[in-house]
Design a protein around this nucleic acid. Structure first.
Length: 291
DNA sequence: TATCCGTGGCA
DNA sequence: TTGCCAAGGAT
C-alpha cells in the first residue's frame, strides 16, 4: 500500500496547519468561501481577506445583498476576480433556493456557479465530513509520486484522477474526509513541487517514487503561462484603477495604464462583458452597482 | 482538451 | 532577473 490512511491521518493531526476554515466551528459557508478564494491563490494571501469576509458576510444571504461592485472591491488583489462574481452568484442561489444553507450534496454543489469537480467535493468533505475524492494539484502530485512512482503528475484527467484517489479512501465518511485533507496538506507541506521534503514524509517507507529512486518527471512539458503583456495583465491594471477609486472614473484615467489602445479597449470591453465593470449614463466607468 | 482568466513570492 | 508555482473553473 503506497499510502497508509492511518499513518497519514496521524501525521495530519500532528503537523496540519491551524487554518481558520479548519476550525470545528467554521460554517459550511466559511468553508465554501475559503475554497473559492484558494483556487490558484496561496493561503497566506487568502487568510486576511477570508477573515474580513466572514466578519462582514457571515451567511450567504448577507453577501447576496451586496452589489457585485462592492464584492469585487472586497476581493482586493486575490486575482481572478470573476471568482468574486461567481461566489456572489452562488450565494444568491443558496439564499434563494437552499434556505441560506450551503448544499452538502456534490451534484447540487456542482450546479452552483464557480463550483467545479474539486470545490464541490472539497465542500462535501471538509464542511460536511463526507467521503468524496478531493483532487487538487497537491493531491495529483502526491498520487503521481506515492502511488504511480513518477516525479510529477501529467496532464489532468478528471475521471482517472478521481478514481485513483477514491481507491485510497477509507470506507467510512469521517476518516475518508480526514484523509482527503491530509493528502492535500502533505502535498502542500512535504510533497511539494520543488524540493520535496522527503526526509520528513510520513509515507516515506511506502512511497513508490522513493522505491523507484525518485526519477525525474518524464511526461509532456507543462505549458507555461505568460503574464507580462497579456490581456490578463491589462485587465488587472484597468480593474485596479476602479478598486482604488471611490466612484466612477473617466476613460482618460483608464487610458494611462496601458499604452496600446487596441488591446486596452478590447480588455475594457471584456471587463464590461464579464460584469466586472459598468459604464454610467454619462460615459464614466465604475464597479457594478457603484454609481 | 487546450486556453484563458490575476497576482505576487521565491529561487 | 526570469520563470515557476499557488486548494480550479468555464468554455
Amino acid at each position: 500500500m503506497a499510502v497508509d490512511a492511518d499513518v497519514l491521518i496521524d501525521w495530519f493531526d500532528t503537523h496540519g496547519r491551524d487554518l481558520p476554515w479548519r476550525e470545528p466551528e467554521c460554517s459550511a459557508w466559511g468553508v465554501l468561501v475559503s475554497e473559492i478564494m484558494l483556487q490558484q491563490t496561496p493561503v497566506a494571501r487568502v487568510q486576511p481577506i477570508w477573515l474580513e469576509w466572514m466578519a462582514r458576510w457571515p451567511v450567504p444571504s448577507a453577501l447576496a445583498a451586496e452589489t457585485t461592485g462592492e464584492v469585487v472591491r472586497a476581493w482586493g488583489k486575490l486575482g481572478y476576480p470573476r471568482r468574486a462574481l461567481r461566489l456572489h452568484a452562488a450565494a444568491t442561489v443558496i439564499a434563494a433556493e437552499h434556505g441560506d444553507v450551503v448544499p452538502s450534496d456534490v451534484d447540487t454543489l456542482l450546479a452552483l456557479p464557480g463550483i467545479g469537480a474539486y470545490t464541490a467535493r472539497a465542500v462535501a468533505a471538509f464542511a460536511y465530513g463526507k467521503r468524496a475524492p478531493v483532487v487538487d494539484t497537491n493531491v495529483r502530485r502526491v498520487v503521481a509520486r506515492a502511488v504511480h512512482g513518477v516525479g510529477d503528475a501529467g496532464p489532468a484527467s478528471n475521471t482517472r484522477d478521481m478514481a485513483d484517489v477514491e481507491a485510497l479512501l477509507p470506507a467510512e465518511d469521517a476518516p475518508a474526509a480526514k484523509l482527503s485533507a491530509a493528502l492535500m496538506e502533505l502535498g502542500a507541506l512535504i510533497c511539494t513541487a520543488r524540493a520535496p521534503r522527503c526526509a520528513d514524509c510520513p509515507v516515506y517507507d511506502t512511497c513508490t517514487w522513493q522505491h523507484n529512486g525518485r526519477p525525474e518527471y518524464a511526461g509532456p512539458a507543462k505549458p507555461v503561462q505568460k503574464f507580462a503583456g497579456t490581456d490578463r495583465q491589462v485587465r488587472g491594471l484597468l480593474l485596479d484603477v476602479l478598486r482604488g477609486s471611490e466612484g466612477p472614473v473617466e476613460k482618460a484615467r483608464l487610458d494611462i495604464v496601458w499604452h496600446e489602445a487596441g488591446q486596452r479597449d478590447r480588455c475594457l470591453d471584456s471587463l464590461l462583458v464579464d460584469g466586472l465593470l459598468e459604464q454610467t449614463d454619462s460615459g464614466l466607468f465604475a464597479l457594478p452597482g457603484e454609481h
